[in-house]
Computed example of a mutant assay.
Amino acid sequence: MSSTDQKKEELRDRVLSQRKEMPEEEWEEKSQSITRKLTESDFFNDAKVVHTYVSMNERREVNTDELIEKLFESEKKVVVPVTNFSDHSLTHIELRSFGELISNKWGVREPEIKENQVQEEDLDLIVIPMAAGDRKGNRLGYGQGFYDRFLEQTNGLKVGFVFSDFLFDDIPAEEFDVKMDVIITENELFFT
Rank of each mutant, 00 (worst) to 15 (best):
V127K: 12
F166I: 06
Q144E: 13
L167V: 04
D124I: 11
F161K: 03
D148Q: 07
S164A: 14
R139D: 04
A131Y: 09
Q153N: 14
G145Y: 11
V127H: 04
P129H: 15
S164P: 00
G141H: 05
A132K: 13
L123Y: 10
D165F: 09
K158V: 01
R139H: 00
D122Y: 00
L157D: 01
N155W: 01
F150W: 13
N138A: 11
V162E: 12
L125R: 09
G137Q: 03
L123M: 12
G143H: 08
R139K: 07
V127N: 07
D165K: 14
E121A: 07
T154H: 03
I128V: 15
L140F: 04
Q153I: 00
G156K: 08
G141A: 04
F163Y: 14
K158P: 00
L151H: 02
D124G: 05
V162R: 07
V159P: 00
G143N: 08
D134Y: 10
I126K: 10
A131I: 08
G145C: 11
D122Q: 14
R139E: 05
N138G: 09
Y147R: 14
D134W: 07
G141K: 10
N138F: 06
E152C: 05
Q153C: 02
L151R: 02
N138H: 13
F146T: 07
F163W: 04
G143L: 06
G160F: 05
K158W: 00
F166T: 10
E152Y: 01
G137W: 00
R139I: 04
F166V: 03
F150L: 14
G133K: 12
P129W: 15
D134C: 09
K158D: 03
R149Y: 03
F146V: 04
Q144F: 08
L123P: 08
I126E: 09
G133I: 06
P129T: 15
G145P: 04
I126Q: 07
N138L: 03
G141L: 04
G137R: 06
K158A: 02
G160L: 08
K158L: 05
F163P: 00
F163K: 07
V162M: 11
L140W: 02
D122C: 08
D134T: 05
F166P: 00
G160T: 06
G141W: 04
R149L: 07
E121N: 13
I126P: 01
L125Q: 09
M130V: 05
V159A: 08
F161Q: 06
G160A: 15
D124Y: 11
D148F: 00
D122R: 12
R139Y: 00
G160H: 09
I128E: 12
F166A: 13
K136Q: 13
M130I: 09
I128Y: 13
R135D: 10
V127A: 10
Y147D: 12
F161R: 03
G160K: 04
G160Q: 12
S164D: 15
F161T: 03
G137L: 06
G156E: 07
